[in-house]
Design a binder for these strands. Structure first.
Lengths: 335, 335
DNA sequence: GTGAAAGCGCTAACAA
DNA sequence: TTGTTAGCGCTTTCAC
């Protein structure tokens, strides 16, 4: 293993000079810098991460805590993770992957040991048990998702309240008066997941405002449960002319079930999805949708973290405004 | 920040004693151990990761290198990642997430800096450019997937050759003589991804052996491309009575397209998938399938790594035998 | 612009 | 069974 001392000897300078060439924390004459850089190349030197962390009390690692639940749409999680990793690298950080199963203990372990300089938490619940720890910790943290109380916390998320409102607005504008909302599986609501409740809030608020009748039905993944949910909705509200879907695994089954009942999209019923663009585009009907900006969320989270680690950057909530793309699945209410 | 020295003082013992209580590398009297453990609790001590890594030259971190490509089925990657993280934690290791975009440089960086003790690589190509580095490195590595040349390498994978053979065998046993194989998108084959080529090898070998006619068609994701592929197959081989699908995004579109053509599954055509159980179960027809044991692959990879880090464990290829579950989508050939 | 040297917190001989 | 101590490789004051 090549050490900094060996590089220093090879370049004929002191250890501190090599260190400063690497960190750029003091000015170095061009000649010296070049000599050092050449030695680094020739010897194939890589600074030892542990030694660096010990001496500087900075690991240059960001911890990313992911849920290990399987009832959330996985590609979104993955896209966030990849965006986090990529953005972090661009800022000189590596990413440590933590799964949710350790719970608050993981927060203690990682912050306590100096394994990571900061953390990003996904899948935040409204009253998340990790939050008190985060508030007390002196290490920066960013939540992807919004808890009930955001004081002393930095959060990044899609504005789901606005998303819900936007969906209702779009459909109301097309003349729909009876709208059904096909949501995530019941467990997601029972867990009080922030995004699910906030979407509902936006939906209900705007529906009340515009005099739209709204039916909310959580829905398990798969064809069977989706058909059953649809059947129930149409029994209870035969006049339903539009569906809002926030459940990737129900999108295609719903389209199939509507077809089997002879309901044409968008002539007889409109379908509006809240999902990643990829899902909207690959569905059997090109779906009008509000997209989930997963990559953008991951990127923003890292940028917030990096700013905080650099000293600037205060606590705040950064909500990404929803964007609705009209495609082939929404149209005027029939009649 | 609480240090080991403070714990030692608090417990009235020396630093090394605390260290040995933590590592278990030498026997400690029960009384001392209890005193030390109580001090650790009371002070809320967490060993500093950097210092530990520096002194022991072990970071207790395993790097996991993931592709950032999006043309592979994401839930499988994710399931592997979660299994790796969970299993690693159970063995006292953390997981560093690397995306593929740094390529071989990431291998150099991580092994050179001692950031990680070992690495796990996913999405291995047949002639992967990271392999020479891995062979030279003194740090253990495990590949999830199989390159062309496995000498000096440790690999874990589903036995895709056997998988292909098993699929043909099952269908041939049901009397099918004309089988079409709907594969991954063309890019996957052009990249010479190990699993795709090996599946094909198993398929072709067994088909030749049993006198089954096999048509291979790569297929892009989505409804449009899948319908087009199906149309082409049925034009070229009107007698096709069975489909093998190794492409999660084509499964449901294929079933839909067959329905639209009035072909009943499994009475008119059989469909056999190579996919995770979840996909097979959530499809509109419960699919006969060979499952992708993603979790098992992640677990095995970590166990191999841990064994190597402990000194035992030699290089070898660990192939998981395929398991075919017959569900509702495969049956006797018509006629 | 550069060097010398004192740690950072822990591990693992070596001693007792 | 326990203590003493010399590093591990780097950063960063302090001095020049």
């Amino acid at each position: 293993m090549v050490t900094l001392a060996e590089v220093a000897r090879h370049a004929g300078v002191s250890a501190s000079t090599v260190s400063y060439v690497l960190s750029g924390k003091r000015s170095i004459s061009t000649g010296t810098r070049e000599r050092v850089e050449r030695s680094i190349q020739q010897l194939g030197y890589h600074p030892n991460a542990g030694a660096r962390a010990l001496a500087s009390s900075r690991s240059h690692v960001i911890a990313l805590m992911m849920p290990l639940r399987t009832d959330m749409y996985v590609p979104v999680m993955m896209e966030i993770a990849v965006a986090v990793a990529t953005t972090a690298r661009a800022h000189g950080y590596d990413v440590l992957l933590l799964t949710g199963d350790e719970g608050p203990a993981a927060v203690r372990r990682v912050t306590g040991s100096g394994l990571a300089d900061a953390m990003i938490l996904m899948d935040v619940e409204l009253d998340d048990e990790r939050l008190p720890l985060l508030r007390d910790s002196e290490r920066p943290a960013v939540l992807i998702g919004l808890p009930a109380d955001t004081t002393e916390l930095t959060c990044v998320d899609l504005d789901f309240v606005a998303t819900g409102a936007l969906c209702v607005e779009h459909l109301a504008g097309l003349g729909h008066r009876d709208v059904a909302f096909i949501g995530e599986p019941p467990a997601v609501y029972e867990r009080h997941t922030g995004f699910a409740e906030r979407t509902l809030e936006g939906l209900r608020g705007k529906a009340a405002e515009l005099g739209v009748r709204l039916l909310h039905r959580p829905c398990e993944a798969g064809h069977g449960p989706t058909s059953a949910t649809l059947a129930r909705v149409l029994d209870e509200r035969p006049g339903t002319t539009a569906f809002i879907v926030q459940n990737e695994s129900a999108v295609e089954p719903l389209l199939g079930a509507l077809r089997r009942r002879g309901r044409a999209v968008p002539e007889d019923v409109s379908v509006l999805a809240i999902c990643p663009d990829q899902v909207a585009l690959q569905a059997s009907v090109r779906l009008s949708s509000v997209s989930i900006p997963a990559g953008e969320m991951g990127r923003r989270a890292v940028e917030r973290i990096v700013a905080k680690l650099a000293g600037h950057g205060e606590d705040d909530v950064s909500l990404i405004p929803p964007e609705l793309t009209v495609r082939a699945s929404s149209g005027n209410a029939p009649g």
